[in-house]
Nucleic acid binder design. Structure first.
Length: 211
DNA sequence: AGCACGATTAACT
DNA sequence: GTTAATCGTGCTC
């Protein structure tokens, strides 16, 4: 583990989810598979914060599924949805406050052959440009729920990367909230890299809709 | 116990 | 632009 591979400390996550989401852009998501690194730079993320946020899974209070969000920051909250997809989140805020950041897209940088083995049937720019695409590409599922993202000896963690300047980051409403009432439906808690082809597909639709 | 729906994706018209 | 796929979760009765 050389100096270029420094995991983000737990204090990084012990802040408001919105700040964590913004600052995760440019950081490196690392998955260890059979001793090999499969990794990518985070290019899109969304914040889900508190029981009052009606888009957050904590809106019904603490349940068996979302309990991890109420725990210590810096852990992975991985959940199953739409009957077939896994989503990866990083728990934010100090223990007791339910909040998490959904990782929506990454730009592959390491272990590309392993990603290609799972996603190679499509063009490379569509390998990890969506929340369920990247978990499939990095083989992240139920077994990774609760993983300590601050543990560099674990199987899933996030390292410090090169932060993106504000000029390269745009903020929009979160994606996929159909029945969520305002103001939560439109609150700009999604952060994505500008002109980034590695961002999730629906970004283009969102940007069009905002004009 | 039953039911509506989901922080999505890929395929199809 | 539209829709099927597919099942765990949590609400309602």
């Amino acid at each position: 583990m050389n100096s270029e591979h420094i995991v983000l400390p737990r204090s990084f996550y012990a802040r408001h989810a919105v700040e964590v989401a913004r600052d995760l852009l440019g950081m490196r998501l690392v998955r260890i598979e059979a001793g090999r690194r499969v990794a990518g730079i985070i290019t899109e993320a969304e914040a889900y914060e508190g029981e009052e946020d009606l888009a957050c899974h904590a809106r019904f209070g603490r349940t068996p599924r979302n309990g991890i969000m109420y725990g210590a920051p810096g852990f992975a909250y991985v959940y199953f949805t739409y009957g077939m997809h896994w989503m990866l989140n990083a728990v934010a805020e100090p223990e007791g406050v339910p909040a998490a950041v959904l990782i929506r897209a990454i730009q592959p940088t390491e272990g590309v052959d392993l990603i290609a083995a799972r996603r190679g049937m499509r063009p490379p720019d569509q390998w990890t440009d969506g929340p369920a695409k990247l978990t499939f590409a990095l083989n992240i599922a139920r077994a990774q729920n609760g993983a300590d993202l601050c543990d560099p000896s674990g199987e899933l963690f996030i390292e410090r990367g090169e932060p993106f300047p504000d000029a390269q980051v745009i903020q929009t409403a979160r994606i996929g909230l159909f029945h969520t009432p305002e103001p939560w439906k439109s609150i700009p808690w999604r952060f994505v890299i500008v002109q980034e082809k590695k961002a999730s597909r629906k970004e283009a639709e969102t940007q069009r809709n905002l004009k």
